Amino acid sequence: MGSNQKVIVLAGVGNLGKYVCEKLLSGSQWSLVVISRQTRDWFKQREIDVRITDYTESSILSILDAVHASALISFYNAADASFLGVHCAMLNACMASQSCQRFIPSEFIGNIEDFPLYPGIYGDTRAPFRQILQASKGIEWTLFQNGWLMDYYLTRDKTYMPPIPDEFPIDPNGWKACIRGTGEEPQSWTSCRDIAAAIVALLAAPEWEPVTYVCGQWGSFNEMIPIVEQFYGKPLPTTHRSKKEIQGNLRAREAAGDQDSLILAQVDEWMVAGASECPRAKTLQHRERYFPELHFMTLRELLESSKCREMF
Rank of each mutant, 00 (worst) to 15 (best):
G274F: 03
F115Y: 12
N111Y: 14
H295Y: 05
T238S: 15
D171V: 05
V50G: 09
Q29N: 13
Q145P: 08
C21F: 04
D49Y: 07
C308P: 11
P165F: 08
F75D: 00
F296V: 05
V86D: 01
A69Y: 13
A255P: 05
V214F: 04
T212H: 12
D268N: 08
E184P: 13
R287I: 12
P210F: 11
C215V: 01
A96M: 03
C88D: 10
L25S: 03
M311P: 12
I112Q: 11
T155E: 06
E57D: 04
N77T: 07
H68A: 14
H68T: 09
K307L: 09
G120R: 01
D260G: 15
E277G: 08
H295G: 07
E229F: 07
D114Y: 06
W42R: 00
T125W: 01
D151G: 01
I170D: 03
E269S: 15
P186V: 04
W141L: 01
C215N: 00
R300W: 13
M150L: 00
C192V: 10
S99N: 07
E167P: 04
P235Y: 07
P169T: 08
L294Q: 05
C178W: 14
V13H: 03
R46D: 14
P210K: 04
Y55G: 02
A197Y: 06
Y160F: 15
V211G: 02
F168E: 02
F115P: 01
L91M: 09
V13T: 05
L117C: 09
P162S: 01
Y160W: 14
I164S: 14
R253A: 15
G248R: 12
A69E: 10
W208T: 06
V86E: 02
Q266S: 13
D166S: 11
K23I: 01
Q145L: 10
C278L: 07
M161I: 01
Y232M: 10
F129C: 07
H286N: 06
T239E: 04
G123C: 11
A252P: 13
K282N: 00
Y232A: 10
G12T: 05
A273P: 05
Q266M: 13
I60Q: 03
R289F: 02
A201N: 06
A196M: 11
R156I: 03
P226H: 10
W218P: 03
L117H: 08
K158D: 03
G12M: 03
R287T: 11
D54P: 05
I179S: 12
C192T: 07
S276T: 08
D268P: 05
P163C: 03
